Amino acid sequence: MNIGIDVFGCDHGRSGTGSYVLSLVKNLPRNNGCTYELFGPEIDRYTFDPGDGSVSYSGIQIPDSITAERLWHLFYLNRFAAKRKYDAVLFPAGSRVRHYTRKIPAVAVIHEVVSQEMASQEMAFDTGKVSVSAGWLKSFTSSLKKPAKIIAVSQFIRKDLTAMNIKAEKIEVIYDGIDHSMFYPRPALSSDTVNIQPFAIKKPYIIYASRLSKPEKKHIELIRAFSLFKKKTGLPHRLVLAGSEDPYAESVHREAASSEFACDIFITGYFPHKDFPELYSGSEACIFPSVGEGVGLPLIEAMASGLPVACAKAGSLPEIAGDCAMYFNPDDTEECASAIEAVLTDTKLRERLIKSGFEWVKRFSWEKTAEKTIELLQSLK
């Protein structure tokens, strides 16, 4: 079986979807009668290469823009897929691509809570920003009815899709995995600084790893809660916000700059996924206040690294973290500040969260994710 994997819309490996593709490709099952070919921008020829020659790449020369990608999918995708003789096509950026192969079975992967994305966001097009209309939302929903199957990366996303009148029987839940060879408890370093080029991050610190992209991520609320925590406890901890930045990030920077503890707030911008294990290993805790998550992968990466986790009781996070996290309301500044204090100072709580979290994450692996994904594609032949 010849399987095509569309890497358009994956932000050249610099987003959550890009990390998904990198991990999936690395763990694709071999010797199962399948051949795999990635296709996407020519500039990404080596971005997702697993390095063992098991996956080929077909590069396409088009401008690096959302509009160009969508036009290519609309007018050229079907002929391209037929020419490459794909038996099925996987679309990891399923909610961004929106145009799928017609005669060749397609599987779209949905990582986002689509209804929230469409209801609250402005979609940035090359010509500027336009508000999402009810008609556009209807059109988008219709596009999700076209793939043979949809992979939802959590039950929370599956419920969201069915509420948008996507048939439940065409949606399969396949959780993202984690790379246990990367994320595991590491010995505490004696140095008071974590050096990850080009960063030098002074310890102790807590971490929130998420893109600075929208209000639902609750970066501003976390900064306010962190400031209250600092004022109340006087502890030396810093707050590290690690993630790529969208235009919304400007408001996060302003909030951080206006805090009386601005010198203890460190915003990294884009942070390479390969360096997160070291960043986690130097941290005291993971604080995750987002209320719009469909995946919550940083939670289980932090747990696998031996960190206690406190997060919002919202979105997919209770599903992903189970009983192994401390939950709080990110809109309640005092409650969030108290959660930060608890996971840092309550020894028994820290030990319980670390132990239970480490056992919990053993159920997540990229090998399982890749195997189930390919099995689904094979079932369509």
Rank of each mutant, 00 (worst) to 15 (best):
M182T: 00
I354Y: 09
E319K: 11
A339P: 00
G296W: 06
F183A: 04
V21G: 13
G9D: 15
G135D: 15
W366D: 12
H219T: 11
N165C: 08
L235M: 01
R363T: 06
G269H: 07
C263P: 01
Y205I: 01
L38T: 10
C336D: 09
A152G: 06
E117L: 14
T373M: 07
A370G: 05
P50W: 09
A108D: 10
D246E: 13
I220Q: 12
S115P: 05
A257V: 06
I207N: 04
I201N: 07
N32M: 04
I300P: 13
H73Q: 12
M326G: 01
S131L: 06
D323R: 06
R96F: 15
P92T: 09
Y57I: 11
M182F: 04
K274G: 11
A312D: 10
K232H: 14
E341I: 00
L222G: 04
T47Y: 15
L297E: 04
G322D: 03
R14I: 12
H237S: 00
G292V: 14
E335N: 12
I267S: 11
V343T: 05
I374W: 11
L71V: 13
D323W: 03
F125L: 15
Y270C: 11
N32F: 00
K202R: 12
C263D: 07
Q61C: 08
V361C: 13
R363F: 01
Q197Y: 03
T268K: 13
K83H: 15
L241G: 01
P308S: 05
G53P: 07
Y76I: 04
H219A: 02
Y184D: 00
L299S: 10
